[in-house]
Every structure is written in structure tokens, then in C-alpha cells.
Amino acid sequence: MQEFLTLAVRLADEAAIAIRSIRAAGFAVETKIDSTPVTVADRQAEALITSGLRAAMPDIPVVAEEEVAAGRITAPSGRYWLVDPLDGTREFAAGRDEFAVCIGLIENGAPILGAVASPAFNELHFGAVGQGAWQRRGELEQKIAARRAPPEGITVFASRHYQDAPELKVCLARHKVAHLTNIGSALKFLRLAEGVADFYPRLGRTMEWDTAAPQAVLEAAGGAVLIRGGKPLRYGKPHWENPDFFAWGLF
């Protein structure tokens, strides 16, 4: 497991460096066939990650967002990588800092490890389920853990782009909410894993490559990601599409 995690961490870090360089130099924004944005940063980061994974571990399939968008479909197997080279492209294109590089490993339908780089913040979160989770900021590395919700109420991190959804208001009305913050990308999972937030409800479309790595980090930190009915969010679904889910801190 350490070999897998070391590889994912290295490639996430290298992709983050590439993305920072592209951001500094300037870039154009294109629109894919599904009306979502894409940039040269998405493509270059994905090429770096997928080539690195395939060179190091050629027997493990790699499923990556831009390859799927281009029609390269890799069938899931018992163990495979899920890659989102630039989660939060809308935030990146808008000049905000809420974007991430996500590399997750799936085994028998469950995320077992992940590495998530936050290029704008020079942060890297990584972990393996059953072994723990860590945060690296610059040269400082520390173990992280989800927290139990405080009695004064939960801190919620929710999607920037679904903040006005009526379903979200109904969901939050069931809980004692002390603080609510709306941000983009996988960073919401990471704030739960760090123990600074308690709940991330996602009542809107996501894809498996969006969630695999940060779910693994959160679960390695003691949290949980559940779908309606209380079952864990699983992988290898048709068209790689997730249902609504609810991410919690210490569960």
C-alpha cells in the first residue's frame, strides 16, 4: 500500500507544479461536448499523471476524466485508478483558488487510498484507509483526523454552485448548523478530514473521478461518505456517475 501511496503523492505533486506554471503563464478556456470547461492545465496534468501511473504499474487500469471525455473508455476491474487532473476547472478558469488534483485507487468498488493536491495553497492531502491521513503544507507534514461534531452545532462546507438549491436548504434544516461555507472542488472533503468541518452534503451531479481520492482521504481520517439509505458511496457505476451523497467527519 505504501508503494501505491508514494506514487500517487509524487504524481499529484508534479501535476500541481505543472498547473501552477500554466496558471502563471495564462491559458484559454474551452468548452467540452457536455458544456463543462477544460483547459490546457487539465490536459497536461492528466497526461503527466496517467503516463506516470501506467509506467509504474502497467497492470492496473487507469480511468481519467479527459480520456473518458475524448472517448477512451477503460472498463473498471477489481483494482483501478481514478484520476481527476483538475477538479474545479470552473474555479480555476474564474481565477479562484479552489481547485485540486485528485488521484484515487479503487479496490472492489471502494476507495482505498488517495492523494489530493491543492496547487494554489501549496497543500497536499493523502491517506490510505486503515492507515491514516496526512496533510503536507510546504515542508511541514502532519497527521490529520476528522472530529466529532461540537455540541454548539456543525460546520458545513457545501458546493459553491449549488448553494441556492432548495434541496440543500431542506437538508440543512434537519441539523443544528453553526457555520456554513460554500466553496468549490474536493477541498470540502479535505476540511472534514482536517477536523475543521463536520458535514458536506452533495445534492447534485458528480462523477467518480471527482470523489474517489478525497473520499479515501476522508475515510482514512475517520470520516464517512454515505448515499441515501446510509450505505457507503461505491465505485464502478454505469457512466461513472455518483448519486447524491453526504460526507461526514468522525462517524
Results as ranks from 00 to 15, higher is better:
Ala216His: 14
Glu219Pro: 04
Met207Lys: 05
Gln135Val: 15
Lys188Gly: 02
Leu218Ala: 10
Asn122Ala: 14
Val217Tyr: 03
Glu139Arg: 14
Tyr162Thr: 02
Pro201Lys: 04
Ala165Val: 02
Arg137Phe: 12
Gly127Thr: 09
Ala100Arg: 03
Ser118Met: 11
Ala212Tyr: 05
Arg96Met: 00
Arg160Phe: 01
Gly114His: 08
Pro166Ala: 03
Val101His: 01
Glu219His: 10
Arg191Phe: 08
Arg205Pro: 10
His179Gly: 03
Glu219Met: 10
His125Glu: 10
Leu180Phe: 04
Val101Tyr: 00
Gln142Pro: 08
Leu113Trp: 09
Ser118His: 08
Ala133His: 11
Glu208Arg: 02
Ala115Asp: 06
Arg160Glu: 00
Ile103Gln: 06
Gln142Lys: 15
His125Gln: 13
Ala173Ile: 03
Asp97Met: 01
Tyr200Val: 01
Pro151Cys: 15
Leu180Thr: 12
Arg191Lys: 09
Ser159Trp: 00
Glu123His: 05
Asp198Pro: 15
Asp198Leu: 08
Glu167Ser: 12
Ala145Leu: 12
Ala197Tyr: 01
Leu172Asp: 05
Lys169Ile: 01
Gly114Ala: 12
Ala186Ile: 10
Ala133Asp: 03
Ala120Val: 08
Leu168Gln: 04
Ile103Leu: 13
His175Pro: 09
Glu98Gln: 01
Ile154Leu: 11
Gly138Ala: 14
Pro151Ser: 15
Arg191Ala: 11
Gly109Asp: 10
Leu105Val: 13
Leu124His: 14
Tyr162His: 08
Val170Thr: 05
Arg147Pro: 06
Gln131Leu: 12
Gly130Asp: 09
Gly104Ile: 04
Arg202Met: 00
Ala146Phe: 13
Arg202Pro: 00
Ala193Trp: 03
Leu124Asp: 12
Glu219Trp: 06
Arg96Trp: 01
Arg205Ile: 02
Leu113Cys: 15
Glu98Gly: 00
Thr155Arg: 15
Lys188Tyr: 02
Ala165Ser: 04
Leu192Met: 07
Ala173Lys: 08
Ser159Gln: 01
Ala100Lys: 02
Pro201Ile: 08
Arg174Tyr: 02
Ala117Pro: 13
Gly153Asp: 07
Leu218Cys: 11
Gln142Val: 15
Arg205Ser: 10
Gly127Phe: 11
Ile144Arg: 14
Ile112Ser: 07
Phe126Leu: 02
Gly104Glu: 04
Ala186Thr: 10
Asp210Gln: 09
Gly114Leu: 08
Ala146His: 13
Cys171Tyr: 05
Met207Glu: 06
Thr155Ala: 15
Ala197Leu: 03
His161Thr: 01
Gly153Glu: 11
Thr181Trp: 07
Ala186Leu: 09
Gly114Arg: 09
Val177Leu: 09
Thr211Lys: 02
Ala128Lys: 06
